[in-house]
């Protein structure tokens, strides 16, 4: 066990856990932030995607020690500072993207990261940034369309 300091969605949080515990389970079980999902545990599906110092990472495969002192953004904190939805979230509603919705926190986190680095992504850019996120409900076409809408927002 070791004390780890995290800055989660702007709030400083401290947890006392095994340093090798994946960030995913720290977020979900210790910090009760359940929006980040478990899908595979081996960095294959992207359901657990969060931002670590602005970079999208697979939190299932990121030991909490690697996040010590880092800024973490989860789906719960991705909205605008004024409390409104992020353009990506709004586009997700406009295009009625989610079906079961289980993959969508991860999809949105990947899409937000993509648009931050690349405000006008091509189809190939979208393929590259989003192919780490599986959607078993097959919402890919809507995800692609929503990313383009959000890019224009």
């Amino acid at each position: 066990m070791a004390e780890t300091k995290l800055i989660v969605n702007g709030n400083e949080r401290s947890v006392d856990v095994d340093p090798s515990m994946p960030l995913l389970w720290v977020l979900r079980e210790q910090l009760k932030l359940n929006g980040t999902k478990f899908g595979c545990g081996i960095a294959q599906c992207g359901a657990c995607t969060v931002h670590l110092d602005g970079m999208p990472v697979r939190s299932c495969s990121t030991p909490v020690a690697a996040a010590d002192g880092a800024e973490i953004t989860t789906i719960e904190g991705v909205g605008n500072d004024d409390g409104t939805r992020h353009a990506v979230q709004a586009a997700w509603i406009e295009h009625q993207v989610p079906q079961c919705g289980y993959c969508q926190s991860g999809q949105i986190m990947s899409a937000v990261a993509l648009l931050r680095d690349n405000p006008d992504p091509t189809d190939e850019d979208i393929d590259a940034a989003m192919s780490g996120n599986i959607c078993r409900c097959g919402a890919y076409g809507r995800i692609r369309a929503a990313i383009k809408t959000a890019a224009r927002a």
């Binding site: 999902k37 939805r85 979230q89």
Partner: peptide, 21 residues
């Protein structure tokens, strides 16, 4: 008509079985 369940599926608040606490 827009689906009722979608907004909660874009902000992490939709509660799935795995989220029960």
């Amino acid at each position: 008509l827009a689906r009722f369940d979608i907004p909660a599926k874009t902000d992490g608040t939709a509660e799935f079985g795995i989220d029960v606490d």
